[in-house]
């Protein structure tokens, strides 16, 4: 499946991916409103770790055998067999965060329910990739299996 891959050697640590992820997951879809005026404030699904010298935007790997799905105690976390996208059903999720406790990549954020990358659900290119100023994020199918 197509996944988002981060290139550490090109990441600027600008964190615009986070800004645009929040925008894509906001009610208004407007970068200014989403990041400044909207309540509840939208949460970024992608996080840039590292420092100015070496950094990378980490988001869900949409694993082949996702630990978060196996560990989900409510069946809210599922991997779509057709698209491969691992996503949370916000109605079913009780916010226990067992998924967070087992995700080896650190890609789940705490909220009222678990918050994670949904690859912008069917968009041709996720917002983080589309808006990366240095093409440090690429959306492609490398074929490699995930843990």
């Amino acid at each position: 499946m197509k996944r988002v891959y981060a290139k550490e050697e090109l990441c600027l640590n600008c964190r615009l991916c986070e800004v645009y992820c929040k925008t894509a997951h906001s009610a208004s879809k407007d970068v200014l409103k989403a990041n400044k005026y909207e309540t509840p404030a939208p949460v970024s699904r992608v996080t840039v770790y590292g420092d100015k010298l070496r950094s990378a935007a980490v988001n869900c790997r949409h694993c082949e055998n996702p630990k978060c799905v196996q560990a989900c105690i409510t069946g809210a976390m599922t991997k779509d067999p057709a698209t491969g996208i691992v996503a949370v059903d916000e109605h079913k999720c009780i916010g226990c965060m067992t998924c967070l406790a087992v995700c080896p990549y650190g890609c789940i954020t705490t909220g009222r329910f678990a918050i994670k990358c949904d690859l912008c659900r069917g968009e041709t290119e996720p917002a983080c990739v589309k808006n990366c100023p240095n093409r440090a994020l690429v959306y492609t199918d490398l074929g490699g299996a995930q843990e």
Partner: peptide, 9 residues
């Protein structure tokens, strides 16, 4: 929006 992009750039 205090994203700090300018700070880091």
């Amino acid at each position: 929006i205090e994203c700090g992009c300018c700070v880091r750039q």
